[in-house]
């Protein structure tokens, strides 16, 4: 291939990328920059004025309440990610390894919940976990409990619902990250004297780790940025950055503060992504 050919190809490549880049620029980069700008200005009607100030960040950083909210958000994200990953892993592993002709159907089934919105599924969980919900109703009918157990309107409920809502994402991320899994490697390990448990620990688990980490990251990011489920299932008690951003933006109408909080969330994302990249590199090195 000659140099001019390559240049031509690059031109075509750029041309092909252009619509995507434009869309990304308009729908993502521009609003993000606007948000960044807003976080440095003073609250004004329906948005922010053109002034420059660090007051919003000072408000956030100097307020122990927001540190608690940030800590709570981290806790929420980690809890949801840990459980979503642990619960999704066997499913994803089965789907990745099965040779059943139903594999396609089963995979579709596992990710089918994505077809309904998270809001709808959250309401479903409210029906299941509420004081008069399916679980409490059953336990009471069986006379196992007298008064309902508080399963919703708190951190527990918000966590349970979020775990289930994000599991399809975890399964998808794992399936895409299980590329290095290969039954022949398991057979090779078995031939070398590894029993099933050892095959799992020494071969399947390490090789599926990139998928697991990707899934954990995805779930974590989605969990800490969520506000619908924490709000609906948390009974107003679950204070995470997502709900705080929503509160500041729509109730208190302090958009710059909301923007600063959103930036804090973004910093949280970025640091997690840096950790993720390090971890992945360490795994693949």
């Amino acid at each position: 291939m000659t140099t001019s050919d390559r240049k031509g190809n690059r031109g075509i490549l750029l041309l092909l990328l252009l619509p995507g880049l434009l869309a990304l620029g308009v729908s993502f980069v521009a609003p993000l920059l606007w948000l960044l700008r807003a976080s440095f200005s003073t609250s004004a009607l329906g948005g922010a004025d053109g002034s420059w100030t660090l007051a919003n960040y000072a408000d956030v950083v100097l307020d122990p309440f927001y540190w608690r909210v940030a800590g709570n958000t981290l806790n929420y994200g980690l809890t949801v990610a840990a459980f979503a990953v642990v619960l999704s892993y066997p499913i994803a592993l089965f789907l990745a390894r099965t040779t059943s002709r139903w594999r396609g159907v089963l995979t579709a089934l596992a990710i089918a919940p994505l077809l309904t919105s998270g809001v709808v599924r959250t309401y479903g969980w409210m029906v299941i976990l509420g004081d008069q919900g399916v679980i409490n109703g059953t336990l009471q009918a069986l006379s196992l409990i007298q008064t309902p157990i508080r399963l919703s309107n708190n951190f527990l409920g918000a966590t349970i619902a979020m775990i289930e809502i994000l599991m399809p994402y975890a399964i998808l991320a794992m399936l895409s990250g299980f590329g290095r899994l290969n039954t022949q490697l398991e057979e090779a390990a078995a031939m070398l004297g590894a029993n099933r448990l050892k095959v799992f620990w020494r071969i399947i688990l390490p090789l599926s780790l990139p998928g697991v980490i990707t899934a954990a990251l995805l779930v974590f990011v989605l969990a800490i940025s969520g506000f619908v489920t924490p709000r609906l299932m948390g009974g107003g008690r679950v204070f995470v950055l997502g709900t705080e951003v929503f509160q500041e933006a729509t109730v208190t109408l302090n958009l710059p503060l909301a923007a600063a909080l959103a930036m804090l969330l973004l910093v949280l994302f970025s640091s997690v992504i840096v950790i993720y990249r390090r971890a992945l590199r360490a795994l693949e090195a």
Binding site: Y123, G130, L232
Partner: peptide
């Protein structure tokens, strides 16, 4: 006494539903 500080979908429906 408060079950929820953020009734969903709203403060009317939770009474109607008996929640």
């Amino acid at each position: 006494n408060v079950l929820t500080w953020d009734p969903a979908p709203d403060c009317y429906a939770v009474v109607q539903s008996g929640e």
